[in-house]
């Protein structure tokens, strides 16, 4: 029974992997084509690296700079959001709060998340100019934090709710402070959830366009999606360069996701913890 089942399992998983990868492969092939080959409608083409040269050699936005900025923005956003959301979500999910207060916080987070991002553009621009952080990665981190806090908070809230209360009580009896209990007991158990949340926060920051655009002004703070948007011009789309940029931009994020994904596997089991 085991053998055919395993084969079937991998067959299905592989099929989905192929479906997901097909457009990615197409993007890569497009990135090796000249415009005239992209629109030719035929299979044959001469591969060229010219689109990649445009990304790195042109005297305009260097994608090296943009990648650095994207990593800084994504990393800082991740750190801020996870720290702030985890503390808050733990507090609300584990301590006694009046329903009115906890309900208001949870609902307000959702409500903010429901509004179209475009309405925050003007206010955030003014806030960034006032705080004198306009055109720095910090301004973008500020916007990305508020955009991702609702998602992170709600996800972590649900994952913390799954952590058995008995473990925390045991830790308290052992003399752990509440912060220690949170850091040493709750976080490790909720690791898959935290890793998944962290991946989402980073990824959403990595590909966010609107605020990265409006809160940056020069390559000093510009991120990859802004650079990519430059290839969608008024009446002409530079498909080849855009495909190259999209393909290239996926690689650093994929490496990070690859590192993170192993934390999404089984957390510590109940038995292991007691010891």
């Amino acid at each position: 029974m085991k053998k055919p089942g395993t084969w079937l399992l991998h067959g299905v998983l592989m099929l989905f992997a192929l479906i997901i990868l097909a457009p990615v492969v197409y993007t890569f092939l497009t990135s090796l084509k000249l415009f005239r080959d992209i629109i030719s409608g035929s299979w044959a083409f001469d591969p060229t690296w010219r689109n990649y040269e445009q990304l790195f050699m042109s005297n305009r936005n260097s994608f090296i700079d943009l990648t650095r900025n994207s990593l800084v923005v994504g990393g800082l956003t991740l750190a801020v959001v996870i720290a702030v959301a985890a503390l808050g979500a733990y507090s609300l999910s584990r301590f006694r709060w009046r329903r009115a207060i906890s309900g208001l916080v949870m609902a307000w987070l959702l409500f903010v998340n429901m509004l179209p991002p475009i309405i925050f553009v003007g206010p955030f621009y003014l806030i960034a100019r006032t705080l004198d952080i306009y055109d720095t990665p910090l301004a973008i981190v500020m916007a990305h934090s508020i955009l991702n806090l609702p998602l992170a908070f709600w996800m972590l809230h649900s994952f913390f709710a799954d952590v058995p209360v008995e473990l925390e009580e045991a830790a308290a009896i052992d003399g752990c402070s509440r912060l220690q209990t949170f850091l040493r007991i709750v976080l490790p158990i909720a690791r898959p959830g935290i890793a998944a949340t962290a991946v989402l926060v980073f990824v959403f920051s990595w590909k966010e366009f609107l605020f990265a655009l409006t809160l940056s002004s020069t390559p000093a703070a510009m991120t990859i999606p802004v650079g990519i948007a430059g290839f969608a011009q008024e009446y002409n789309i530079r498909y080849g360069e855009m495909a190259a940029a999209a393909f290239f931009a996926t690689i650093p994020a994929l490496i990070l996701v690859f590192i993170a994904q192993k934390h999404i596997v089984k957390g510590m089991t109940l038995g292991a913890l007691k010891g």
Binding site: F16, A17, I20, L21, P23, V24, Y26, T27, T30, V199, L200, V203, W206, K207, F209, I224, P225, I228, A229, A232, I237, Y239, M242, A243, A245, A246, A249, T250, A253, L254, V257, F258, Q261, I264
Partner: peptide, 18 residues
């Protein structure tokens, strides 16, 4: 786990265009 995450990593502007 890694491959299934890829679509989420690509900037939407590129997804739409491609």
């Amino acid at each position: 786990r890694s491959v299934y995450m890829i679509p989420l990593l690509i900037p939407p502007i590129a997804i739409g265009t491609i």
